[in-house]
Amino acid sequence: MMRIGKVLRSLVLGGLLIISGCSQANSDGYTAGDLRGVNHTEQGINHFSVNGYGGSLSGNTCCVMLPNKWYQGMQAKIEWETDPKTAPPFPGYQDRDKYEAWEKQVTGSFQQHSTVVVIPAYDKERCGMTVHFLTCNRVKVTTVCEGFGTPNYPIKEPLHMKEPATCPK
C-alpha cells in the first residue's frame, strides 16, 4: 500500500509539472501556445519539434514558447523524422527473427530532417504554432487562429501531395 502511495504521488507531481509548464504565460516576455502539425505528404511523420519543443500530428501538444511581440527576422528551428515507407510488409510476430529483421529495416529507413524557417508576423492574437510538412522536405509555419482549410488560413497547399520526381534546390 505504501508503494502505491509513492507511485500515485509521483504521477500527480509529474502531471502538475507538465500542466505548470504550459501555464507559464507571460514568463520573461514569452507566452506558451499549442504546437500542431499537418502532414501534406504521403510519407509518415514520426515526430517533430520546434526549437526543442515536441509537437504532434494527432492534435494539439503543449507547448511552444513564442515571444509576446513579434520581431523582424524571427526564426524557428524545425526538426522531424520521416518514414518513407520503403520497408517490406509486416511479417507478424510468430517468427521473432523475421520480426526483428523487419523492425531493423523499418527503423533504419527513417530519415532525420532539420531546417530553419522564418515565423510570419503576428499581433497580440496568435494561437500557438502550426507546422506544415510539404513535399521535398519543405516546411511552412503559421501562428494564426483559423483552422487549416478556412478561407483566411495562409497555407493553401492540399493534403496528400505526391513527391515530385525531382525537388528544386
Rank of each mutant, 00 (worst) to 15 (best):
K124V: 12
N60K: 15
Q24D: 09
T166G: 01
V38D: 02
K104N: 11
N46Q: 10
K156Q: 08
S23R: 14
T107D: 11
P158G: 02
F133Q: 00
W80P: 04
M1T: 01
L16G: 09
K98Y: 00
G15S: 11
N137W: 08
E146I: 07
P91M: 06
G54P: 09
Y153K: 07
V50I: 12
G14R: 00
R138D: 10
N137K: 13
Q72K: 15
T150W: 03
T107Y: 13
T41Q: 02
D83K: 05
A25Y: 15
D123R: 09
Y153W: 10
T135W: 02
A101T: 10
W102K: 04
V117G: 01
G108T: 02
G5K: 11
L57K: 04
S23W: 15
G37P: 00
N46H: 11
N152G: 06
T150I: 05
P164E: 04
C62A: 05
T166Y: 07
L35E: 08
T130S: 00
A32V: 09
C167D: 08
E103H: 12
W80L: 06
W70K: 05
K85R: 12
N60E: 13
S49N: 14
L13V: 14
N137H: 11
L16P: 07
C127S: 11
W70D: 01
G21D: 10
P164Y: 00
E42W: 01
A25Q: 14
V50C: 09
G44Y: 04
E125T: 13
K6F: 14
A32S: 11
